[in-house]
């Protein structure tokens, strides 16, 4: 089985409120999948389920070979395989960019200070921030902070990267620099799943687009569905997003 992520009739609810009402799809190794949809459609929840920030109530969810629908899932192993980047960056404010990136290699992968620092410098140059390694988060722009957050995830060499509306808090100028980093990652063959409002980016970079509505997958297909949507709801959505 080459699918890196596999949803099988997956259900998720918060109390009585059902957010995901049976989601089925899979993501192959090396694929870039963009999930779009209105707020409240369940797209962010679906993403958070993939890193087990939420537990699911029904169906199956496989991520990098880990069965997240089971209670005995090895969280530590899962999180070494999966990297996630949040809308609000969530950098650690008391650590420099390099220390933010080096923290997990040092503590989780038990690398020495020197090794962790080498790794940090390598991934920071990858996101174009080698010269900012000694800066604290508050000294960086939003776009730079988000790139450090991406680097922080990359430092653990994940098999899968999740992006949760990573440019929503940024103004258009800063959005571009973050998207370019993500584009490069995609070109390098990283498997990526992103929840996004950037239609242009989804069209250019995604191999597949998933349109979610009301906790279900309403329409799914290649990026061309963003130009020629098959359902009136997606057409409507695209018009309003632009």
């Amino acid at each position: 089985m080459s699918a890196l992520v596999k949803f099988v009739d997956m259900h998720k609810s918060f109390g009585d409120l059902e957010i995901l009402k049976g989601v089925t799809f899979s993501v192959e190794r090396g694929e870039v999948v963009a999930i779009i949809g209105q707020s409240g459609s369940g797209k962010s929840t679906a993403l958070r389920c993939m890193d087990r920030l939420e537990t699911i109530q029904g169906g199956e969810l496989w991520v990098c070979g880990h069965a997240l629908h089971r209670d005995d899932v090895d969280l530590k192993a899962l999180r070494r395989d999966v990297g996630i980047v949040f809308q609000s960056y969530n950098l650690f404010p008391h650590l420099t960019a390099e220390q933010n990136v080096a923290l997990a290699p040092r503590l989780v992968a038990s690398k020495s200070h020197a090794e962790a620092s080498d790794i940090a410098q390598a991934v920071l140059s990858k996101v174009g921030l080698a010269e900012k390694r000694a800066a604290y988060p508050e000294q960086l722009s939003g776009g730079q902070q988000q790139r450090v957050a991406i680097a922080r995830s990359l430092a653990m060499q994940p098999k899968l990267m999740l992006f949760d509306e990573v440019t929503s808090a940024l103004d258009p100028k800063l959005t571009g620099e973050v998207l370019r980093v993500m584009e490069r990652l995609a070109a390098d063959g990283m498997t990526m799943i992103l929840v996004t409002h950037e239609m242009q980016f989804a069209r250019n970079v995604a191999d597949r687009v998933v349109y979610m509505r009301d906790g279900r997958i309403h329409e799914m297909g290649g990026p061309e569905i963003l130009i020629k949507p098959q359902t009136p709801e997606l057409a409507d959505f695209i018009t309003h997003e632009q």
Binding site: L75, K76, N90, F92, H94, R152, S153, M156
Partner: peptide
């Protein structure tokens, strides 16, 4: 969000408390 981010990086509960909660 700070704690979530640390969890997703694979830090243990003790590590999160020490490095992400206590210091700041």
């Amino acid at each position: 969000g700070q704690i979530e981010a640390a969890e997703c990086l694979g830090l243990s509960r003790a590590q999160i408390f020490l490095h992400v909660v206590l210091r700041p």
